[in-house]
């Protein structure tokens, strides 16, 4: 349903897949090069548009990398609000994925229900940040918009509506529906050893029983709110679905916790000067897994190098080991189970 240009060249024996070659490069734009041509402050808006689905996490990771390089201390309130927006984008991304996944196995009504629940989250984004998808609220040194008390109350109210809708429609379907189980249980197996060996990230890794999540490192305000990764041990498409579904609930809890713990104070500090000479690496957890930013400053307002390593790129090798041996009809389901984001991968 979501037409992203990736080309998987399959080799078949009757209905069984025996070999697969991925061909990418249809939407390569050259964002990393443009990141060297633009001033470093403008890059925040450029990296947000690497991927429109997890745009806030990209901006957050880039801002934190530059702040670390320039040794800027961000006000605590800004870190808490950044956490809220990054978790909101995780909920909307997971619901979007769940909808598309349902569509891939022909379950049209679940697709519609997921996207219906997702609109509540987008409403919250629009209310707090001013736009549904690409928010452009993170800047170097903090954030641009505050979430005041009234707004926080409204967010809590909408999140309880959201939970009610999820509890009544999406969750019982995913947990109990026999069609979903027949299409996903035991399909696209990836063992714990393989996942580690091939460098899988995000829900694919956690669906295979490895408790690794970059949020454990405590960037933004995850240290204050506390965080435990969600792990399922089966390593099939169903386990990945359950990991993502449980993460939706967990993200909701994290937002509520962050809103209640949020200290008063400024939302940004003025950052003067340019990034000094030096390198910095920063990691963050996107809805799809770990994203790594590498920046190299040279004392001027342009960066020497901006390098991004996105989660889908890391998840393509695991996909290539899952596909051989499966039925042709399972290819869309298994491919979607890694939540591919081609716009991220090719940049």
């Amino acid at each position: 349903m979501l037409p992203e240009p990736i080309h998987l060249k399959l080799e078949l024996e009757d209905e069984t897949v025996v070999g697969v070659t991925p061909i990418i490069g249809y939407i390569y734009r050259g964002i990393e090069k443009a990141g060297e041509l633009n001033p470093f402050r403008n890059n925040v808006f450029l990296v947000e548009r690497i991927c429109g689905i997890c745009s806030f996490t990209h901006a957050l990771c880039y801002c934190e990398a530059v702040e670390k390089l320039m040794q800027v201390e961000v006000p605590p309130r800004a870190r808490f609000i950044r956490l809220c927006w990054s978790e909101l984008s995780r909920i909307h991304s997971h619901l979007l994925w769940l909808g598309l996944f349902a569509d891939a196995m022909g379950f049209e009504s679940l697709f519609m229900q997921c996207w219906r629940a997702r609109e509540i989250i987008l409403d919250i984004s629009e209310m707090t940040a001013g736009h549904r998808i690409i928010q452009s609220t993170s800047i170097i040194g903090g954030i641009r918009r505050d979430i005041d008390k009234e707004m926080a109350k409204e967010v809590e109210h909408k999140l309880s509506d959201f939970k009610e809708l999820m509890d009544n429609t999406v969750s019982p379907t995913v947990y109990n529906d026999p069609t979903i189980k027949r299409r996903t249980v035991g399909k696209g197996m990836l063992s714990k050893e393989q996942a580690n060996l091939l460098g899988a990230v995000g829900p694919i890794l956690r669906g295979s029983g490895v408790p690794l999540d970059i949020r454990q490192t405590g960037y933004a305000a995850y240290k204050e709110t506390g965080f435990e990764p969600i792990v399922e041990s089966d390593g099939d498409c169903y386990a990945r679905t359950i990991v993502r579904l449980r993460e939706i609930y967990q993200s909701r809890e994290l937002i509520l916790k962050a809103l209640s713990l949020m200290p008063e104070g400024d939302i940004s500090v003025t950052v003067r000067g340019n990034p000094p000479e030096g390198e910095m690496i920063h990691r963050a957890e996107q809805p799809r897994g770990e994203v790594v930013y590498y920046i190299k400053g040279n004392g001027t307002r342009n960066l020497d190098r901006l390098r991004v390593r996105t989660p889908t790129f890391a998840n393509i090798p695991p996909l290539l080991t899952m596909l051989p041996g499966c039925e042709l009809a399972d290819v869309p389901v298994i491919t979607l189970s890694i939540d591919p984001c081609i716009a991220c991968t090719e940049r």
Binding site: P3, E4, Y26, I27, I50, C51, G52, W115, R116, L122
Partner: peptide
């Protein structure tokens, strides 16, 4: 989708949903 960031693509899809 000829090279967008997915932002507009998911809004096209959102226009189809409830």
């Amino acid at each position: 989708d000829c090279g967008g960031c997915n932002g507009c693509d998911i809004e096209v899809l959102a226009a189809l949903t409830p």
